[in-house]
Simulated assay, not measured.
Amino acid sequence: MTPELILPYDGVLPEFISRPVWCGRGSTAIGAVRLGSQAWIGDDGVIRADGQPVTLGDRFWLGHRSTVHIATFTHGTTVGDRVTVGRNSVVHACTVGSDVVIEDDVVILDGASIGDGAVIEAGATVFPRAQLAGGFVYAGSPAKPQRPIDRAEIDERAERLREAAGDPAPVAAGDPPEVEDTVYVASTARVRGRVSLGAGSSVLFSCDLHAEVGPILVGADTNIQDNTVIRTRGEGVVIGRDTTIGHNVRIGDSRIGARSLIGIGASVAPGTVIADDVMLAAGSTTDPGQLLEGGYLWGGRPARILAPLDAEKRAMMVRIVEGYCEHGREYRKAEAGRG
C-alpha cells in the first residue's frame, strides 16, 4: 500500500523502493522523498521533502502522528536502515544513522547528527547541530548521554516501541470548513467546530483543530504546520497574523500574538498569553497562565527569556511566513490537480 496522500513538489514525486508494508489513515508523502523497502508509516505520519530531499533507509518505522521534514534553505534529512520512530516525534533536517530508536515525543533539530546504534528516550530534544555518538542512550533537553547500550537492547527497545504503537483512538473527520480561496487546509487535516481561518493562512497535513468549547481564530497569513493539535475546552484560542506554529505543537486555550513563532514540538498550556513578536524555542513548554513578553526568544520547560530577538531571527521568521504562504498556494493547486 502507499500513503493516503501523495503530492509532488516542484514537479518531483516521492519514490518508493518497494510498496510500504503499511500506511495508516492520513499518512502523507510529499516531494523528493526516497523511501526504502519494508517501510511502516503510522496514522497521520507525514514525510515532507519540499525544498530539500528526504532519504529513508530500509525497514523505516514512523509512528502515529510523527513528522519527517527538512529545512528549505539549508538541510535535507537522511535516515539509515532499521530506524524506529515512536509517536508524536519530529525528525527535522538532520542525519540519523542505522539501528537507531527514537522514542515518543522526541524532537531532533536542524543539522543534528545521530550515530549508529543510539537510543533517544521519550521527551528528549536533540538541539541544532548536536553530534550524538552511536552506542549510547540519550535523554533530556538538550539530549545528553546516559549510558552505553548494546545491539540486543536496541533491538528489544525497537520491538517494544512498535508493539506499543497499537491502533490510536478513531478521530471524527468533521465537515470541511468553509474558507476563502486564499486559505489552504490539507485534505488530511481535521478542522471541527467554530474555527475561523484568516486570508492566506494554511493548516498543514494531519493537523487537528477542534473547537470543542470556545472558538479557534487564526490570523491572516499564519501557518499551522503538520501534526499540530489545537483544542479548546474554555475561552478559546486566538492566533495573530503572520505567525508560524511549528510541527507537532500542542495548544490549549490561549492567546498567541502576531509575528510570532512557536517552535517544533512546543506545548502551550491553557491560559498562556504570548505577546506579539515572540519566538518560543522548539520543545519548550509554558505554564498555565504564563505571560511571554514580546521581543524575546523564550525557551525551556517552563519557558524563560533566553535572549532578545535580533534582526537575524526576525528576518528568519518573516521568511518562514512568506515561504508557507507560497507552500499553501502550491499545495492547494496540487490537491486540486488530484481531483
Results as ranks from 00 to 15, higher is better:
45 G>M: 07
240 G>E: 04
246 G>P: 04
11 G>S: 06
169 A>Y: 08
318 V>G: 08
242 D>T: 02
12 V>P: 09
111 G>M: 12
44 D>Q: 04
128 P>D: 12
138 Y>G: 00
281 A>K: 02
86 G>C: 10
151 R>F: 09
93 A>I: 12
126 V>P: 03
14 P>G: 06
85 V>P: 02
60 F>A: 07
315 A>S: 13
155 D>M: 12
58 D>S: 13
200 G>D: 07
181 D>N: 11
277 D>M: 04
324 Y>D: 03
144 K>V: 15
139 A>I: 06
218 V>T: 01
39 A>C: 05
171 V>K: 14
228 T>L: 11
263 G>V: 10
287 D>S: 15
206 S>G: 14
67 T>Y: 05
139 A>W: 02
62 L>E: 01
213 V>E: 12
21 V>D: 13
301 R>A: 14
127 F>R: 11
111 G>Q: 10
197 L>F: 03
297 L>A: 12
34 R>F: 05
13 L>Y: 14
287 D>H: 10
293 E>P: 01
185 V>K: 00
267 S>M: 14
321 V>E: 07
153 E>I: 01
207 C>I: 03
225 Q>W: 10
4 E>G: 12
21 V>R: 15
92 H>V: 11
278 V>L: 03
189 A>D: 05
149 I>C: 01
254 S>K: 01
245 I>R: 02
62 L>A: 03
257 G>Q: 01
247 H>P: 06
8 P>W: 05
199 A>Y: 06
84 T>Y: 00
325 C>F: 15
294 G>H: 08
170 P>H: 05
101 V>W: 06
28 T>Y: 00
41 I>R: 00
184 Y>C: 07
331 Y>V: 00
51 G>T: 01
251 I>Q: 00
9 Y>R: 03
86 G>I: 11
312 E>P: 01
152 A>N: 05
128 P>F: 12
173 A>T: 14
219 G>Y: 08
28 T>V: 15
161 L>Q: 03
84 T>L: 01
20 P>E: 10
311 A>V: 14
298 W>R: 02
174 G>W: 10
59 R>A: 08
113 S>F: 10
144 K>T: 14
174 G>R: 03
233 R>E: 15
147 R>K: 13
193 G>A: 11
226 D>P: 06
228 T>C: 11
75 H>D: 14
339 G>T: 14
21 V>C: 08
110 D>T: 13
200 G>Y: 11
229 V>T: 15
184 Y>K: 02
173 A>G: 04
175 D>L: 13
37 S>P: 04
208 D>K: 05
69 H>G: 06
30 I>C: 04
52 Q>K: 15
301 R>E: 10
56 L>M: 02
80 G>M: 09
274 I>P: 03
275 A>Y: 00
5 L>S: 08
55 T>E: 13
137 V>I: 15
263 G>Y: 09
116 D>S: 04
295 G>Y: 06
285 T>V: 14
8 P>N: 08
278 V>R: 02
263 G>P: 00
236 G>A: 10
153 E>R: 08
5 L>I: 12
43 D>W: 05
8 P>C: 04
245 I>P: 04
63 G>I: 08
322 E>S: 12
122 A>N: 02
57 G>W: 04
